[in-house]
């Protein structure tokens, strides 16, 4: 099995001197083609920073990130963005407040010089379950779930092979979360996408991902398969704590 995304000893450091924060320390992982890989952790574990480092949005202090065996360089080439796209956590913050859905979707097409923008925009909206009626709306005319669908459409319109999902449903209501997770599942099956999903919710990761990494304080705690997680066969104490906490409050 060849790895599509390879990360070796990644370290990310913010700030200098006394204010130095080592957000990610020595993280390595491999994601195969067509696989869905999860990263679980609590706030401050550095899980989102790993995704941002892949995109070049976080300063890489050391280590390597390879896509199809090719080491990524800074700044990223334009072709990189047609290969890798990201969906952000908060759908209220990830859409430009003054741009219509149409503008949001046509911008990437204009940047990369596609000429069949009309057809692509309509197809992208259809693919994420939004009809034509949504095309000229502003973000404030959309609900949270609809916004996240637009964000997914934006990520998919360049037809990338790798999708980075940063807590894509944690800002959504439970019933909307189910719809968005189903949509992501269906899109992956349909297009053979590779997912790298970050979440604090073990259940979401167990549902979406075949393999997962547990992170704490910027370091890898352990790597688990979905089966191991389902059988609660975690080795590390921290993962066991997370598993217990995910069951809710059982009282004394």
């Amino acid at each position: 099995m060849s790895a599509l995304v390879e990360i070796r000893d990644l370290a990310v450091t913010f700030g200098h001197g006394a204010n130095e924060v080592r957000a990610v320390r020595g993280v390595s992982l491999d994601v195969a083609v067509g696989e869905s890989f999860g990263i679980v952790g609590e706030s401050g574990s550095g899980k989102s920073t790993v995704l941002r480092a892949i995109c070049g949005l976080a300063p890489v202090a050391s280590g390597e990130i390879r896509i199809e065996g090719e080491t990524l360089k800074k700044p990223r080439k334009r072709a990189f963005y047609r290969e890798v796209q990201m969906v952000f956590q908060d759908p209220y913050a990830s859409l430009h407040p003054r741009h219509t859905v149409d503008k949001v979707l046509s911008e990437p097409l204009a940047i990369h010089g596609f000429d069949d923008a009309e057809a692509r925009i309509e197809r992208a909206l259809n693919d994420v379950g939004l009809g034509k009626g949504f095309r000229f709306r502003f973000p404030h005319q959309l609900s949270g779930g609809q916004r996240q669908r637009v964000a997914i459409a934006r990520a998919l319109i360049l037809e990338p092979r790798i999708l980075l999902l940063d807590e894509p449903t944690s800002a959504l209501d439970a019933s909307i979360q189910a719809e968005v997770l189903n949509l992501l599942d269906a899109l992956r099956a349909e297009r053979g996408l590779t997912y790298l999903l970050v979440s604090h919710d073990l259940a979401v990761v167990a549902h979406m991902c075949e393999r997962l990494l547990v992170m704490q304080h910027g370091e890898v705690v352990e790597e688990l398969s979905r089966e191991a997680l389902q059988n609660r066969a975690a080795q590390a104490e921290y993962t066991k704590d997370l598993l217990i906490a995910s069951e809710g409050f059982k009282g004394i």
Binding site: A174, Q177, D185, A186, A203, A206, H207, M208, Q230, S246
Partner: peptide, 11 residues
């Protein structure tokens, strides 16, 4: 509608 760690319905 909540996913479960144990897995289950899909979608």
């Amino acid at each position: 509608c909540l996913p479960r760690i144990e897995g289950g319905q899909r979608p």
